[in-house]
Simulated scan of single mutants.
Amino acid sequence: MNFASDNVAGASGPVLEALVNANEGPSPAYGADPLTAEVERRLGDIFEREVSVFLVTTGTAANALAISAAVPPWGLCLCHEESHAIDDECGAPEFFTHGAKLIGLPGTGGKLEASRVESYLAGLSEAPKQMPPRALSISQVTEAGRVYSLEEIAALSEVGRRHRLAVHMDGARFANALVALGTTPAEMTWKRGIDILSFGATKNGCLMAEAIIVFDGALAETLAYRRKRAGQTVSKGRLLAAQFLGYLAKDHWFDNARHANAMAARLAEGLGRIPGVRFAWPCEANEVFPIIPRAVDGALRAAGFVYHPWISRSLSPGEQIGPDEALIRLVASFATREEDVDRFLSIASGSPQSAAKKPSTA
């Protein structure tokens, strides 16, 4: 039973069905097919405006290429110090910007605060000896499972505008954030000042499908070339587009995200009733970050549950992890089952009945 990531789940049924249907017969290559055109039109409808869309296969490609469109080799991109872009992309943004620098700023729960970003920017010199800031990147959902409110996004974007920065959103868990806020894609992005978005779908039901969605036309000018040079212009592009068609049809992407968020909430509610368990950050989307006794951690791992220990750099001031405690991350997906959640909670609460039988890992 695996709560390590929403990446461990396979693709959903509607996505696979759309992929199989698109496989029949010949079709123009390299994104010149009608399915890709339909995805671009559909995303324009979803975001309530004309957008430029560049389909890619990975979140790393989406983030790195999006940032490279906004930041020259001599520029800076500001992000949270624990963001995926700076911590988990193996230097891909720096590689595709040909030497630009990512600056990580601190913030509780993986969130950047507008005042902290403003303070950092105000302290920079305009002399050529120092790299100039050119972009601000925020993660929605953050690496600590927090969701930026619409007001927080608008405040950060306003700082970006004042300092002439492009504002990028890493939306690897975009749908989970939308469901959590009960808002629309337009309201959470360009209407709040976002210029370019990494629109994630792989974590929420696709096989391998991400999109760079550009709201500022100037940032789209070079992306077709950047994508090609990055090896991300897929020859059988219809099979990439087909995943999005299955994903977006009949609000399937929202249904998947609602289920994942509900399973995470079920985990959090149950863990909150167990003595000795508290939370590093609130559960706001599909991730839970409990601080648990090491004895509970041992029992869960012995029972076959899989999850990751987590870093504690963005804990609230004064919060600490004790020597007999462990901070862990639990991630729910569209495929998470209620019975898996309930068994996890049963083991964690020390139920003799649940501990008597080790769960299957099949």
Rank of each mutant, 00 (worst) to 15 (best):
E40I: 12
A85E: 07
A249Y: 02
I328S: 04
K203I: 15
E118W: 02
G322V: 05
G171S: 03
L136S: 04
F199C: 00
A22D: 05
D170I: 00
A302M: 06
A172K: 03
P352T: 05
E221A: 15
E24V: 09
N63I: 13
N2P: 01
A37F: 08
Y247S: 08
T189V: 10
R258P: 04
S346M: 05
A299L: 14
E187C: 07
T36F: 01
I274H: 10
L136P: 02
S52M: 04
P73V: 06
L121Y: 08
P26Q: 06
S351R: 13
S119E: 15
S137Y: 06
I194L: 02
S349H: 07
R146G: 00
S68T: 08
V341M: 10
L178I: 04
H98I: 11
A230W: 06
L223R: 09
A260P: 03
P72W: 07
K101Y: 08
L165P: 02
K101I: 06
T336V: 10
L330P: 08
G104K: 05
P72E: 11
G31K: 03
L156H: 06
I194W: 02
G350K: 03
I328N: 02
F344K: 10
G322L: 10
R227H: 10
G217P: 14
V214A: 00
N21K: 13
R134Y: 11
I194Y: 03
T202S: 14
A154Q: 12
G13V: 12
V56G: 02
L76E: 07
T233L: 15
M188W: 08
T361I: 11
P26T: 09
S12M: 00
A100Q: 14
A62Q: 01
F334K: 02
V331D: 02
G350S: 07
L245H: 03
M188S: 14
Y30T: 05
E151T: 05
S68Y: 03
A11H: 00
W281D: 08
C283V: 07
S125H: 07
